[in-house]
Design a protein around this nucleic acid. Sequence first.
RNA 1: GGCGGGUUGGCGGAGAGGUUACGCAGCGGAUUGCAAAUCCGUGAAGACCGGUUCGAUUCCGGUACCCGCCUCCA
Length: 478
Amino acid sequence: MTTTIRLHNTRTRQTEDLVPLIPGKVRMYVCGPTVYDRAHIGNARPVVVFDTLFRLLRHVYGAGNVTYVRNFTDVDDKINAKAAQTGRPIRDITDETIGWYHADMDALGALRPTHEPRATEYIGAMIAMISDLIDRGHAYAAEGHVLFDVRSYAEYGKLSGRSVDDMIAGARVEVAPYKRDPMDFVLWKPSDATLPGWDSPWGRGRPGWHIECSAMSKALLGETFDIHGGGIDLQFPHHENEIAQSCCANHSGQFANIWMHNEMLQVEGKKMSKSLGNFFTVRDLLDQGYPGEVIRFVYLQTHYAKPMDWTHDKAMQADATLRKWRALVAGVEAGKAHDHIVNALADNLNTSLATYWLHHMAAEIQDKQTDLDRGVSGLSYDSEYVAELRRTFLASAQLLGLLLPELGGWDEAGVDLAPWVNRLAGLRAEAMETKDFAPVDALKSALTTAGLEVRMSKAGVELLPGPGFDVGKLPVLE
RNA sequence: GGCGGGUUGGCGGAGAGGUUACGCAGCGGAUUGCAAAUCCGUGAAGACCGGUUCGAUUCCGGUACCCGCCUCCA
């Protein structure tokens, strides 16, 4: 029995069963970054969202049956501007930025997509598609530009629920004398000698923004495929234009089946912007000490279709929860993910509900382990049963990209705490005799100040690093 | 002006037309030298106004407020 995945389709405004166009195989395209600077934490949201979907698809259909394409836009006026400003070659800038992007997204536990095409490697495909559009009467050349004729495509505006006439009435469209209609958008534009350009039937120039995704998805996935994703801000104009180009150029007249859009991210309740001083790149957060796994977990706690607020407080809660969970599966090997988790994700990627189940499973493990430790008689389970629960819990978390070995380590002290453990245990043993607990309390207090959680029980003394743990604040032992 | 999203208990955040979501924090208790952790128990909600219904936080309409897109910032 294969799991049926249901996804909300922005195109039809309905939640639908995912029925792969090629039975048993799923193809997904997600709009990637323009590579001129570090990715900010808003850029990272779709990365985590669609990585989670990718993991679910691989789980349900098999890793070899899912093709995930995410592009790099490496030709763009912002990149040109940066090159002009710094005097560096464009390729240097884009190569460096792609390296950053990989490092930062790896840190969030995002798998690399199957293909990560660079726009500049598909210029020929774009020119071919533009030529097709002209031949079919959907585009026209004018003053070195090639423009898409929105009036030639009756469905234009359907994805975003707009009409061409309404948008023109909004009077916020660029007025250019060579446009037949104000809403017509650029497929190709001329480059002067200072700008990167490629020879084309319309002269030396460079592609407009939208055509690359149409060309690359066609080259790597085919004219039609199953899922197209991206941020809701891309719905118009980018995705609308992609649909227009692809549907008009493709012989099938079809393009992506299901469109998925993630809502935006805010910071401490406000839109992230440089002027408000609440603008963060992923690298900023990592450098500030937020582990990538913590960032990922904060993202997953909010459903992708709802606006999400990044707050320090949420990160601290996520930090504490993950520490607890990591302790629960220390030394455990992953088993098989629980159906509850699979089903929650299969229900339009309900990651919030999935985390509820993780809490539920963790509590069960904790409860049963406590009873075993206490030697409660007449239990209906044994330690092997609890061990199996741990394996299932770990696999379930890993389906969400959490508790992966490669994301670990941040919850460890980084130094051997044994000397402090021994000293505390020694002082405590003495105090038990003398009844003078002042030295014990003094050391305990110092350790707590350093960010350690101090646990003392009949079994012994334990020191666990917490979110604020600072090696430098550890008390010096004589 | 046009299009779209949101408003749930102290905070975060889901599902479901009628039965405790859950997490964090709080409160009471067990345990502890004191704590921590753990365990037991517990209070707390559905922006506002109408409508549909035997019954709505869940469906419909309206109001208010917030946010996003329409300006190649996901």
